[in-house]
Structures are given as C-alpha cells and as structure tokens.
Design a binder for these strands. Structure first.
Lengths: 160, 160
DNA sequence: AGAATTGTGTCAACAAAGCTGACATATCTT
DNA sequence: AAGATATGTCAGCTTTGTTGACACAATTCT
C-alpha cells in the first residue's frame, strides 16, 4: 500500500532532490514507526485498567525513582501540574501510588508505588522490554551500547 | 532534582529488585526522553504556522511519498479517517497539500505537497535531522548502521 | 516577628488530536 | 443491477495537554 513504487518524476522539484541529500528523512521516519509501535505495546493492559498513557508514564517514573516529589515528576514529564494532578489523583485514589509528607520539607509529597503500582508498572514495561531485547538481539552484539549512547545523545542534555 | 540519590532501601521490595534484573527500564526511559526532545524540535516552527504535530506528520509523509492516497496515509499514521480529515482539510485549504484524482481509480485522491508544503516539511525536518546527525557523530563511526537496524527491528514488521 | 517565597492542590475554561457511529456520494467490481 | 470500495462529513465523546487564578501550609528571608 504505502510502500509501492510510483513514477513521481514529473512532480520532483529541486527542493525535493536537495532535501534527500541534506535531511535524514530515513532515521526520522524510523524513529516515528519504532516509537509508535513501542508505545502501542502496553495499550491492551492500559485498557483493562481504565488508564491511559499519561497514567503509564506517572506509574513508571514513580516506580523507577521511589520518593520523588511532585516537583521532580513535573520536571521529568515536562507537563503542567494541572495535567499531572488529574492522573496522579486517579492513581492515588485507585491505590497504585501513595504520598508521604517530606521528612525534611513538610510541604513536599514524596511519591511511592504501592505493591499494586509496582505490579502495574512491571506489567506495562514487560512487553516493551521484550520488544527492545528482541530488536537488540536481531541487531547484533554490541548493539545495546551503541543504541544506548545514541539515545543519550538524542535527548536534551541540560536539565533532566 | 529528579536525579539526586536517595536512600530508598526501606521501600525496596522483592518485586522491585526482580524488575531491575528482568526489565530493561534503562532503554525504555531513554527512548521516552529521546523521542520527547526529538519531537519538541519543530514546535517553534509549528506554532508560527498555527499547526500541530498531527499536521507535521501529514506534511512529512505526503512530502516523502508524493502521490500517496488517503488510504495509504491512514495506513501509515494508524489513525481514523475522521482524525485525518480534520488536519488534512486544513492543510489543503492553507495550500500546503493538493489532491489529484487518481488516474486509474477515480475514487482515489492522490496527495502532493505544494512548493509551500515542501518548504514546510523541510523546515520541520531540519532541526530533527541535525539532532540525529549530532547524536550519531557523538556516538561514533558505524553508529548509523546499528541504530538504523535497531529501529527497523523495533517497529512492527507486518503491514507498514 | 512579619514578609516573601515555595510546594502543592484545585477550580474553571479551553485546545489539540484521538475515538465511535452513522450516513452520503462517486466509482469500481462482479 | 447489486455490492463493495474510497472518500468526505456530521455529531458527539475522551484523553491529555494548556492558561490563569486562587488557597493554604511550610519554609526562608529580612
């Protein structure tokens, strides 16, 4: 369908030809497809829980760094506190995340996953992790180190 | 902030420890950060045009495969035709994309970027491409081939 | 001590971009 | 002629993001 060959020479312009020499369309697209399918993996589980991808991200990061504060989470997700509040409240009310008043600064709310939250985070990560493991295995030995370095270099270095 | 070390040993459970041996949390997170920042690159340009990321994707793919049909595009984006219709109509009305009745099957609408659409696609891709080039350069020689194979392996193989 | 700042929560309104279901029209296939 | 296909469109809903405003407790500054 989308990949069939067509004679488009009549529509080719200088701009188009120049682009293909200058712009890395190939990796741009591969990133789109890879990420689209990667994030699609947990959808079945999320549907069962009645949660969405925003909940997924919150449970994931709280599980990864237990005791992180609300401000930490906002920094990580780069969304507004009003957006976070909506999903965070649902996760707390449903018993997946609990809050503990900060021991030093009592204004802070340290976040922890409950046992149920840990189980959910694990279940969501599992198919994604398997996809990564399969892809790395197919790519060859040493792929993990290269891919990891590439991804680190792709993200913004300042303030994460 | 989010990366500071904390003694969370009192909250560690067997589940947590098992996860870290079993699940590739590291690459999962790096993919999230890398893709988040990667897709943030074109935002300044999109804001000027008054378009969003959905428009970006449409212009990108039509520019990449001139003459693709509406059905092709739906297949590529994996969204519903109602979702596509909204942004596609705006792009056509704004003169970035034009439709041509299919020469063999007159029901089809073949999609092409106009000169303006090509310029937009290029402007949007440019910062993303530079980010990729920089990341690959920093990662080392041979990185492109490994990363490319990894991304190909990450996406679903059936029907793309 | 009093004032200012900070961390968090919440209300209200809105926007982007996805979804389902239903239906219309033109065109192609059988 | 009948059915299937490609596209467009109406209407309404959901998720997840946004701004702006305000409240309250706790901390820090002067």
């Amino acid at each position: 369908m989308a990949g069939q060959s067509r004679d488009n020479s009549q529509y080719m312009t200088d701009v188009t030809r120049k682009d293909e020499d200058t712009i890395d369309f190939e990796i741009i697209e591969l990133l789109f497809f890879a990420y689209r399918d990667f994030t699609g993996d947990p959808d079945a589980i999320l549907e069962k829980s009645g949660f969405g991808r925003a909940h997924h991200r919150v449970v994931h990061f709280v599980n990864r760094e237990p005791g992180m504060t609300v401000a930490d989470l906002l920094d990580t997700l780069k969304i507004t506190k009003q957006s976070l509040a909506r999903v965070l409240k649902q996760l707390i009310d449903s018993g997946y995340i609990r809050q503990v008043t900060g021991p030093e600064d009592r204004r802070q709310r340290m976040l922890y996953t409950t046992k149920e939250g840990q189980a959910l985070a694990r279940a969501l990560a599992e198919p994604q992790s398997r996809r990564i493991a399969d892809a790395l295995a197919k790519t060859g030995p040493g792929a993990r180190e290269i891919v990891k370095r590439f991804l680190v270099n792709m993200k913004n270095s300042t303030a994460d």
